[in-house]
């Protein structure tokens, strides 16, 4: 029996005695994970300020269960907010490698997606972080509004719910 989170109380009540559900481990695992995506505070440029604003009073990341983590070991989601230069690229790769599976990457803003305003004529800017690490969700904008970032994080949650635990191992090996 599959569980949808919005129907969870119904299922729980329908079992005699209540409080018992049967489901797949995979489903319950991804469900809980999607509700507590801890993100790596990885801001480099302008988008970092919007990332901070999203975490602050008005937009309040916490209501999606998202708390910033300074260490990649504790993070599920890497929000790459800002321009990545060639000097920074090895560091991004290394931080990504330090994150534990399942790990997701959200590219925030034009620079992280494809170089943004520094695409032309710049000798120092990496044109898109997808040249270095795999990206799950792209949020365009220069910088994107906090609402766009929130939407992007919900999309990460949606993607997470479609994944299987076996995939993580495969992704790890590959």
């Amino acid at each position: 029996m599959g569980v949808n989170d919005d129907k969870l109380p119904v299922y729980a009540e329908s079992v005699p005695g209540g409080g018992i559900i049967t489901t797949q481990l995979n489903k319950i695992f991804t469900l809980t994970q999607a509700k507590s995506l801890w993100y790596l505070l990885f801001g480099t440029a302008c988008c970092a300020i919007e990332l901070m604003a999203t975490g602050a009073s008005r937009y309040d990341f916490d209501r999606l269960g998202m708390i910033f983590r300074a260490s990649p070991r504790q993070a599920d989601l890497m929000i790459v907010a800002g321009t990545i230069t060639y000097k920074m690229a090895p560091v991004v790769k290394r931080l990504y490698d330090q994150m534990a599976e399942p790990r997701y990457v959200l590219a925030m803003g034009g620079c992280a997606i494809g170089g943004g305003p520094f695409y032309y004529d710049s000798y120092a800017v990496l044109r898109g972080i997808d040249k270095v690490i795999p990206v799950d969700v792209y949020v365009p904008g220069c910088p994107p509004r906090p609402e766009a970032l929130l939407q992007g994080c919900l999309e990460v949650g949606k993607k997470l719910r479609t994944q299987k635990m076996e995939d993580w191992r495969v992704r790890n090996d590959g």
Binding site: T85, Y86, K87, Y119, Y120, D121, S122, Y123, A124
Partner: peptide, 26 residues
């Protein structure tokens, strides 16, 4: 200190400098 540690393309702000992977502005 500004350029990557393995930089080998000379001094980029010189006017005659030509970069390896610079896409010119159309």
């Amino acid at each position: 200190f500004l350029l990557p540690d393995d930089w080998d393309q000379g001094h980029p702000l010189r006017k005659d400098w030509v970069g390896r992977d610079v896409i010119p502005f159309p």
